[in-house]
Amino acid sequence: TAANVKNGGRTPIAGIIHALVGFCILLFLGKWAELIPIPCLAAILVVVAYNMSEWRSFKALFNTPKSDIIVLLVTFLLTVIVDLTVGIEVGIVLAILLFMRRMVQVSAVTVLNDDILSEKQDEEKELENLSLPKGVEVYEVNGPFFFGAAEKFKEAMLQMGSRPKVRIIRLRHVPAVDSTGIRLFWQVIQDSSKHGTRLILSGMNMSVESMLRKAGVLDKLGEENICPDIKAALTQAAALLK
């Protein structure tokens, strides 16, 4: 197959012809094919393996982050020493763990105050002339709202300590949410209801909104507490404080 691809075979027809030729050789020329010396076949396989190895690309991969290099070397060594299946399985597991670690690293939760709002006004026009009413807390989540971001959100709320009258969660930079994030939303809603805090969500994209709506979070929260942007959320918060 590798030799076929190297010689220009790109379509399914090339694979079919390759299979038919091999079948015909075994069926009609088998007694002559068995006379081919094994060293000759070995030499052909060595050349094909060398062409498949793409060692230049392999060398270039050593300029990637160390975690990727570890996955590469572990998969390579297990494939050579143990078995191809074992190498692939372990490599996939390591890649999944690495992906989860990176998702935790890129996610962040920021508690906005008047000073931070002033700093961000140059970057975001929608923050111009905005200030936080007393009794309102704004949490901005950046990155996928998976288990890592959920833990950071819990830590941010614990650090604040106080019980605000209105809590706004800004989700404009959240591309996706998983079951852990959905469970956290339910916990926040229950905690807010218990302590008399109103909860407002702002800036959700369609994907996140669809997930939360299917989970029943938005129905529990109420449509009036779902705002398209931070300005509308602060306006709603001011109305709730009256």
Rank of each mutant, 00 (worst) to 15 (best):
residue 88 I to Y: 04
residue 99 F to P: 01
residue 85 T to Q: 15
residue 77 L to D: 00
residue 110 T to H: 01
residue 114 D to Q: 04
residue 32 W to T: 06
residue 104 V to K: 04
residue 8 G to M: 00
residue 114 D to L: 08
residue 99 F to L: 01
residue 52 M to V: 03
residue 110 T to K: 04
residue 65 P to L: 07
residue 97 L to E: 01
residue 116 I to P: 01
residue 86 V to F: 11
residue 38 I to L: 15
residue 78 L to Y: 03
residue 64 T to W: 09
residue 55 W to S: 12
residue 16 I to M: 01
residue 54 E to H: 03
residue 20 L to F: 09
residue 101 R to I: 08
residue 117 L to Q: 02
residue 82 V to F: 14
residue 59 K to M: 04
residue 105 Q to H: 06
residue 127 L to T: 00
residue 48 V to A: 12
residue 113 N to I: 02
residue 58 F to H: 09
residue 44 I to C: 06
residue 60 A to R: 00
residue 62 F to S: 04
residue 72 L to V: 12
residue 76 F to A: 11
residue 75 T to Q: 06
residue 126 E to Q: 14
residue 111 V to N: 02
residue 43 A to F: 15
residue 12 P to I: 07
residue 113 N to L: 04
residue 98 L to I: 00
residue 65 P to E: 02
residue 129 N to P: 04
residue 56 R to Y: 04
residue 32 W to N: 09
residue 65 P to M: 10
residue 72 L to H: 10
residue 102 R to E: 07
residue 127 L to W: 11
residue 100 M to K: 05
residue 48 V to E: 03
residue 106 V to G: 06
residue 78 L to C: 06
residue 67 S to W: 07
residue 88 I to V: 15
residue 88 I to P: 09
residue 98 L to E: 00
residue 32 W to M: 11
residue 59 K to V: 11
residue 67 S to H: 07
residue 55 W to G: 10
residue 9 G to V: 05
residue 104 V to Y: 05
residue 38 I to E: 15
residue 54 E to M: 05
residue 81 I to C: 02
residue 65 P to G: 07
residue 48 V to G: 08
residue 72 L to R: 14
residue 73 L to A: 06
residue 55 W to H: 11
residue 82 V to K: 14
residue 52 M to R: 05
residue 119 E to W: 09
residue 121 Q to W: 06
residue 42 A to G: 08
residue 118 S to C: 06
residue 8 G to W: 02
